[in-house]
Design a protein around this nucleic acid. Structure first.
Length: 306
DNA sequence: CGTCCAGGTCTAC
DNA sequence: GGTAGACCTGGACGC
C-alpha cells in the first residue's frame, strides 16, 4: 500500500519553488538511484532512511501549490515516514533561502526569469554520493558516467522494498562502507572506471574508516567554512580538480565558483554569440553576482532545459 | 582500422 | 605559478 505525504513548495525565505525546474536543475537526476519521468513530471528516487531499509519514493506536484511524495512499498511507520519526507525535502533543498538571490536577479534582464522558482539545485541524500558521482563525470562522456554509477548502485546499493530483482533502480546509493569493501577488480572490471577506480576506492575508504567527513561539508555555514576553504578541502580529494570542486560546491549550495568544463565553456560562448570566451572573461562577467556567481552562470546555461 | 576526445586530474618539470 | 603529457574507457569520427 503506497503512502502519500505532502510538503509546501516554498523555500526557507518564503520564496516560490518551481518543482519541475528543480527536478531538472542538473544532470544527476539522470543517474540512479534517481529516475526522472518526463511524461508524469515526477522524480523517482531511492533514499536511505536512518534505522530502516531504504525506500523508493516518487515526487511530484500535488494540489494547492504543494508537492506530493508517494512511497513505494509497504506502509511506513510514522517515524520512518517523517524521515522519508525530510529526505525528500533535503534532496529538493527546500531549506535553502534563495530570496536574496531572487532580489539580485529581479533587476537583471538575463536572470529575472529565475525568480518564479528556479535556482534550487537538487542534491543527493549524502555529500558522499555527490562527490562520487562528480568524480564519475570527469574526463568522459555521459554514457560512461552512467555506466559507472549504474554499476555502483546495481551491485553495491541496498535494495528498497519492492526493488526490481535486477538493475540499478530501487536501490540506495552505496554506503562508503559498501564501496570500500568492493575490491579494485570491481572498479576495473565491472564499473570500468579506469584510472578513476583507485580515486573512488580511496575516497570511500577514507570516509568508511572515519578519516574523512564529507557530510560536515554540507552542514558547515559559510562563516565557519568559507567557499575558498571548502574548495581547498574538495581539491584535496583524489580525482577532484577545479571542475569537480565547483560542481560539488554547487550541490553544497556554495555558488561562488563557475563550473568550467567542456560543456559549459562552449555553451556560454554560444550564449554570447562568440566562438570562445576565456575562463578569466567568464569569471569577470559573473563577478557582480558575488557569492551567487556560479549559480547565475549555471542558470543562464540551463535556462532552456525546461 | 586508427585517431580523437568527452561535463579533467595529476605529476613533473 | 604555469604548462606539457599521460591517463582508462568507449563512442564518434575520418580514412
Amino acid at each position: 500500500m503506497a503512502r502519500q505525504l505532502e510538503f509546501p513548495l516554498r523555500g526557507a525565505g518564503g520564496e516560490p519553488v518551481d518543482l519541475w525546474r528543480t527536478l531538472n536543475s542538473h544532470g544527476f537526476v539522470d543517474l540512479p538511484p534517481m529516475l526522472l519521468q518526463e511524461q508524469a513530471r515526477t522524480l523517482e528516487i531511492t533514499i536511505p532512511i536512518v534505522g530502516a531499509r531504504p525506500r523508493t519514493v516518487s515526487v511530484s506536484n500535488g494540489n494547492d501549490g504543494r508537492g506530493t511524495v508517494t512511497v513505494v512499498g509497504p506502509t511506513l511507520s510514522e517515524r520512518a515516514a517523517a524521515r522519508a519526507l525530510a529526505g525528500v525535502e533535503h534532496v529538493l533543498r527546500l531549506d535553502a533561502d534563495l530570496s536574496r538571490f531572487y532580489e539580485l536577479a529581479s533587476g537583471d534582464p538575463d536572470l529575472a526569469w529565475v525568480t518564479s522558482g528556479a535556482g534550487r539545485m537538487v542534491r543527493s541524500p549524502t555529500v558522499f554520493e555527490d562527490v562520487i558521482k562528480t568524480i564519475c563525470t570527469t574526463n568522459c562522456t555521459w554514457s560512461a558516467t552512467k555506466r559507472m554509477v549504474v554499476a555502483l548502485v546495481e551491485h553495491l546499493g541496498a535494495p528498497a522494498p519492492g526493488a526490481p530483482r535486477e538493475g540499478p533502480y530501487g536501490r540506495a546509493f552505496p554506503t562508503p562502507q559498501a564501496m570500500a569493501e568492493a575490491g579494485e577488480g570491481f572498479y576495473r572490471e565491472v564499473a570500468r572506471a579506469g584510472y578513476r577506480g583507485p580515486h573512488l576506492l580511496s575516497v570511500a575508504r577514507s570516509v568508511a574508516e572515519g578519516d574523512l567527513d564529507l557530510e560536515v561539508l554540507g552542514r558547515a555555514s559559510p562563516e565557519d567554512l568559507p567557499d575558498a576553504e571548502l574548495e581547498r578541502q574538495l581539491l584535496a580529494l583524489p580525482g577532484v580538480g577545479p571542475y569537480a570542486a565547483a560542481h560539488v560546491m554547487l550541490t553544497l549550495g556554495r555558488y561562488s565558483k563557475l563550473i568550467l568544463d567542456s560543456w559549459t565553456r562552449p555553451a556560454y560562448a554560444r550564449h554570447v554569440g562568440r566562438k570562445a570566451v576565456s575562463d578569466a572573461a567568464m569569471a569577470r562577467r559573473f563577478k557582480r553576482y558575488g557569492s551567487y556567481a556560479g549559480l547565475a552562470f549555471w542558470l543562464i546555461l540551463t535556462r532552456d532545459w525546461v
